[in-house]
Design a protein around this nucleic acid. Structure first.
Lengths: 351, 351
DNA sequence: AGGACAAATGTAAACGCTTGCGTAGTTTCA
DNA sequence: TGAAACTACGCAAGCGTTTACATTTGTCCT
C-alpha cells in the first residue's frame, strides 16, 4: 500500500499539501495540484478510508435503512439512492429492518433493531442516515438523535427529522377524482394493511384522500367498498375477489393503494371473467415498471427520483454541517399516468 | 463520545485489556471481562470503527456487488447476504454495477465500474467482496486481485476466485425431464437473453441442459422452439406470444429460464385463450415468491440461502486469513417444486 | 525451595491521514 | 514604500484503537 508520504516525496511537497490537493481544497496552486495528482496516479495511491475517517471524523459513507427489500418500490428507491451516493463518491451501507414475522414485540425489543440503533450506528460508521418508511419508537429516536448526524426520513413522518414524502392524501384524491371524472360512483378502495410493518400513516392518508374525494363529489362512502391487503399482488387479488364476490356492493372501479395490489385486482377481475376496464376500472399508485405491461393507470410517484432527492438533501446537510436543520416535510411530485385499465363505466342493467 | 480510556479507568484496567475484553479474546480473566463489560455499558461506550480499523486493518464491512437491484432474485440474494452479515456483526456496503443502458463499451470503460474497482474498493473500506452474477474483465480482475482480500463469486464463474452457484445444466435438465416424464415431447424453451447484462454462461448452460435432456430422451431439438427474452415477465410474455403464434411449432409445454418469464408465459397463454396446464404446461426456475400465487411449477434455487451461504464462505475466509483459498466452484442445492402449471399433455387432434 | 512455565495484564509504538497554526513570499493600496 | 492582507505551503499534534513485547503474579514440578 502506497501511503501519502510516498506521494509527497514524489511530488516534492509535504503530506499536508498532498492531502489538500487530493481533497480538492482550494489553497493549493494549480501547478502543485497537477503535480500531486500525477504522482498519486503514478503510484496508484488511494487514501486509506480508515485513516482518513479517523483524522477527519468523516466516513464518506451513508447508511440507508429500509424495512423491505423484496418489493419493487423499495428497491427502486434504493437504486436511486445508491446511484446518487455513488455519483458523489459516497458508499451506501444497507441496513434491513424487517420485523421478524409474527413477532408482536415493540420495535425496540427487536434484536435486529437494537443491534442497529445501539451498536452499528454508534460506531461512527456513517456520516448520515436515510430512513425509508421508517417508524421509530421514542427510544430508537433518542439513539438516532444521540448520533448528532444528519438524518433524513423518506416516506414516513419522523418527529424532529426533516422528511421527504409524497402527499398521500393528494395522490389518493387524484386517483379517486380520475375515476369520478370518468363517471364512476361505485368506487372501491383496496388500502394497505395498517398493521403492516410499514409506517401506518400511509394507508390511512390514502384512505382519507379517497374518502375526501368521494365526499367532495357528493358520493356516499360505503364501508363495504373498502378492503385492505398487504401491498402485494396476491393481496390485491384476494381483496378483489372478495369485493367482487360480495353481493352487497357493485363496484365499477377500484382504487388500489399500490400498483402491485392493482395488478392483483386486474388478474382477479379477469379470473372472474370480468373485463378491465369494461367491467372494472383499476387504478394504482407507484409507477411500477410492470405498469405498462398490464396497461395499468397509475399515479407515478417516481421512486428512483425519491431516492436521489433524499440523498441530495442528506449530502447537502453533510456538507453544510448544520447540526439541526428544520425538521419539516417536503412534498415530492407525483403524476397521473393514464393507460387502459380505466375508462367510463359501462351502463349496467340494475339487478 | 466516550473513548476506551474512560472505560479503562472505570474498570481499573489498561486500555489494552479493555480492547481485548471487548473483542472477546481469551487471555482475559472472566472477572475482568465482566468488569470491563459493565463499565462499557455504563458509559455507553462503542468502539470507533475508524480507529479500530486503522489499527487492526479490519473493517467489519463486506462489499456486495450486484448487477441488478430491481429483480426479485437479486434482492432476495441480497437479503440473505445482509442478514447473514448482520448476524455476524458485519456491515454490508452495496455496489450497484448496472451497465448504462445502450452503452456497448467494454466494461472496463464504464465509469461506474472504474470508480468501483479503481477507487472505492482500493480504499480498504471492505474486508471482502461478494460478487453476484458478475463477469469481470481482465483489468477489473487484476484490480480485485490487488486488493488481496477474500473474494467470492456467486452465480458466475470468476477465474481464480472461489465461487458458489447452482448447477444450471442440472437444473435445466431436471425441469425438462419433469416435462418429459409427464409425457411432453413438444417442449419449448424461453432462455435468458445472452446479451443481457448478466453473466452469459447462465443462459447457455440452461439451454444446454434443456437440449441434453431432450436428446437423452430421444426427442429431436427444434430450433424454432427456442426463444430468448430478458428475464422479465414482459419478456416471457412476448416470447410466448410469438411461440404460440408460430404455425411451424406446436409446443405443449414451455420451460422458461426464470420464474418471471414463466409467469409471463402463463399470462400470455391465458390471453390467447389457452389454459395452463391444459393446453400448455409451464415450468420456471427460481422459487419466486409469486410462484404459489400463479400455481407455478418451478425449480427452487433458494436465493436467500444462496446469499447466506456466500457470506458464510466469505466470513470463513476472513477469519482464517487464508490469502488464496482454492478457486473452485461449489454447487448449491435446488429443488423441484411441483404446482399446478404442469400436467400431462392433453391428446390433440393432429391438424 | 527454586526454577520454569503459563496466565493475566500493562506499556507504548504503530496505524495513515487531516488540519490548526505558523511562516515565507507576493500583492495591494494609500 | 511600508504596512496590511493574501496565498501557498510546511510542521506536527492529534484522531482512538490494536497488538507485539515486556512484566508481573501465581502454579507446578522435582
Amino acid at each position: 500500500m502506497t501511503k501519502i508520504q510516498k506521494v509527497a516525496e514524489l511530488a516534492g511537497v509535504s503530506t499536508a499539501t498532498v492531502s489538500r490537493a487530493l481533497a480538492g481544497k482550494d489553497s493549493v496552486s494549480p501547478a502543485t495540484r497537477v503535480r500531486v495528482e500525477a504522482a498519486a496516479k503514478e503510484l496508484g495511491y488511494v487514501v486509506s478510508a480508515a485513516a482518513s475517517s479517523l483524522a477527519s471524523g468523516r466516513t464518506r459513507n451513508v447508511g440507508v435503512v429500509t424495512p423491505i427489500l423484496t418489493s419493487w418500490f423499495y428497491t427502486t428507491v434504493l437504486k436511486g439512492a445508491q446511484r446518487a451516493l455513488a455519483d458523489s463518491g459516497y458508499d451506501l451501507t444497507l441496513y434491513l429492518l424487517d420485523t421478524n414475522p409474527g413477532s408482536d414485540l415493540p420495535h425496540a425489543s427487536n434484536p435486529r433493531r437494537r443491534q442497529l440503533f445501539e451498536d452499528f450506528l454508534q460506531r461512527k460508521r456513517v456520516d448520515a442516515l436515510l430512513a425509508i418508511s421508517l417508524e421509530l419508537e421514542q427510544e430508537e429516536l433518542d439513539h438516532v438523535r444521540r448520533l448528532d448526524k444528519p438524518v433524513v426520513g423518506l416516506g414516513g413522518p419522523l418527529p424532529g427529522v426533516p422528511t421527504l414524502s409524497v402527499d398521500d392524501r393528494a395522490i389518493a384524491s387524484l386517483a379517486t377524482d380520475h375515476l369520478i371524472a370518468l363517471g364512476h360512483t361505485q368506487i372501491a378502495h383496496i388500502g394497505g394493511n395498517p398493521d403492516f410493518e410499514l409506517d401506518f400513516h400511509l394507508p390511512s392518508n390514502r384512505r382519507d384522500g379517497y374518502e375526501g374525494a368521494l365526499t367532495a363529489a357528493g358520493i356516499p362512502i360505503q364501508p363495504l367498498m373498502v378492503r385492505s391487503a398487504d401491498f402485494t399482488i396476491a393481496g390485491g387479488y384476494d381483496a378483489t375477489l372478495q369485493l367482487l364476490g360480495d353481493p352487497r356492493v357493485h363496484p365499477t372501479a377500484v382504487f388500489a393503494a399500490s400498483d402491485e395490489m392493482a395488478i392483483g385486482a386486474i388478474l382477479a377481475a379477469r379470473d372472474l371473467g370480468k373485463s378491465v376496464p369494461g367491467d372494472l376500472s383499476v387504478i394504482g399508485i407507484d409507477g411500477h415498471e410492470l405498469g405498462g405491461f398490464f396497461g395499468l393507470t397509475t399515479i407515478d410517484q417516481h421512486p428512483e427520483a425519491q431516492g436521489r432527492r433524499a440523498v441530495d438533501v442528506l449530502l447537502a446537510e453533510i456538507e453544510s454541517g448544520t447540526a439541526k436543520p428544520k425538521p419539516d416535510n417536503t412534498y415530492l411530485p407525483h403524476d397521473l399516468v393514464v393507460r387502459k385499465s380505466t375508462s367510463s363505466p359501462t351502463p349496467v342493467s340494475s339487478d
